[in-house]
Design a protein around this nucleic acid. Structure first.
Lengths: 185, 185
DNA sequence: GAGGTCATGTAACGAGTTACATGATTAA
DNA sequence: TTAATCATGTAACTCGTTACATGACCTC
C-alpha cells in the first residue's frame, strides 16, 4: 500500500504527468521506492477514480499529456498514512541467499558477481554524495530539508555498509586460505 | 526466481517436510529470504514436478507428512544459479518513504513509529549476535562456515546501521530545534 | 468422541514485471 | 512522409499475501 502514497508525495512536491513522475521515480523518489511507468499509470487511474487527485485540463485522448494535482482528500490520506504503524517487511536479499547456497554447492562463479555489486554500490554512493553536496550544503536548513537530508543519509549509510561488507567478502574469496576451498562439491 | 533456490539450499542442508521448512524459514534462511507456508508448499509441488526434488516414502494423502530430498538435477540447478549474474533489485523502504512524505505533510505521529523500528532492530541484532556467539566461535572455521559467518555479519551490519540511523533520526525529532517544526501543513 | 495440534493444502486477491500496442508531436 | 520521440496505455504473467479448508494423529 505504499505506491499510491509515493505518488501523492511526488505530486504534492510538484504536479506532474505520468511520464514526468516516471522520470522522477528514476531519480529521487525511486531511490527508496521504485516503480515502472505501467505501475504509475495504473495507480494514477485508481487515485483519480478515488477522488484523491484530479487531472488539470483534461484531454481524454490517448497519447496526450495529462497533468495531475493532489486534492484535499489526497493530502488528508497522506497525512493519515504518515502516522500509521506498519510492520517492517521481511528482508529478501538474493545475494546473501546465494552466498548461503554457495556454502552448500561451492563458490564457483560468485566472485565476479560480488565485484559487480561492489562497483554498483560505489556508483550509487557517488550519486548520493553528489546530491548531498549540491542540495544540502545550507548552513541553517529548514525542518523539511533536515528530514530529506536524513533520508539521503540513510541511502549513504546503506551504500557505505554494503561497500565495506563486499570488500570484506572479496577478501575472503581472494585472500590466503581461500584457494583451498574454491573447488568443492 | 529466488524462492525455489532458497528451498533447494535448505533441503540440501537437511531433507525436510513442508512444515519443517516453514519453521526453518522463520529462523535462519528466512532472515534474508522470508516465505510463508503457502508459498513453500506451492513451490515444493513445482520443484517435484520439475524433477529437481522428490518425496521420500510417498504417501499421497492429505494431512500426512511428506519429506523431500534434492535430486542431482536440483543440485545442478542451484550450482548454476549461484554463478548467475542478477541485477540488484531496486530498494523499496516504506519508512524512508514516510519520512519523505512527512517533509511535505508534517511529521505528526511518526516518532512512535521510529521508536518501534528502533526496538525491532535492537531485538533482531541481539538475535544475530546470540547466533554468532553460539555458532561461529570456532578458532579454525571451515570455508563453508566462513561463508555462513559472512552472511550473518551482513545481517549484523545492517541492523547496526539502522540502529545508528534511527537514533540519529529520533534525535532530530526530539532534539533542540525540532519543536518549532512539529506543526506544519 | 471432542478438542488440540500437526500437516498439507485451496482460493482469491494484490502488487510488481515484462512485453507489447497506440496515439500525438516534431524535425529531417 | 517518414522517423524519432513523447506520452499513455493493455495484457498476460509471476510472486507474495490473506483467509480459509481438510485430513491425520494424539490425549483426555
Amino acid at each position: 500500500m505504499s505506491l499510491p502514497h509515493a505518488i501523492l508525495t511526488a505530486l504534492l512536491e510538484k504536479p506532474s504527468s505520468g511520464l514526468e513522475l516516471t522520470r522522477r521515480f528514476d531519480r529521487s523518489i525511486g531511490f527508496f521506492w521504485s516503480a515502472t511507468h505501467q505501475q504509475i499509470y495504473r495507480e494514477l487511474g485508481k487515485l483519480e477514480q478515488g477522488g484523491l487527485i484530479h487531472a488539470l485540463a483534461q484531454s481524454p485522448s490517448r497519447g496526450q499529456k495529462r497533468e495531475y494535482e493532489v486534492l484535499p482528500a489526497g493530502r488528508a490520506e497522506l497525512t493519515t498514512w504518515v502516522a500509521t504503524s506498519q510492520d517492517p517487511k521481511p528482508i529478501r536479499d538474493a545475494l546473501l541467499l546465494r552466498l548461503r547456497a554457495a556454502a552448500v554447492v561451492g563458490r564457483d562463479g560468485l566472485e565476479p558477481e560480488l565485484e559487480r555489486h561492489l562497483a554498483d554500490h560505489r556508483r550509487q554512493l557517488a550519486e548520493y554524495t553528489a546530491i548531498e553536496d549540491r542540495d544540502f550544503a545550507a548552513a541553517d536548513p529548514s525542518g523539511e530539508d533536515r528530514l530529506r537530508h536524513l533520508v539521503l543519509r540513510a541511502g549513504i549509510g546503506l551504500e557505505t555498509f554494503w561497500i565495506e561488507w563486499l570488500t570484506e567478502a572479496l577478501a575472503e574469496f581472494r585472500g590466503p586460505g581461500a584457494a583451498d576451498e574454491v573447488q568443492q562439491g
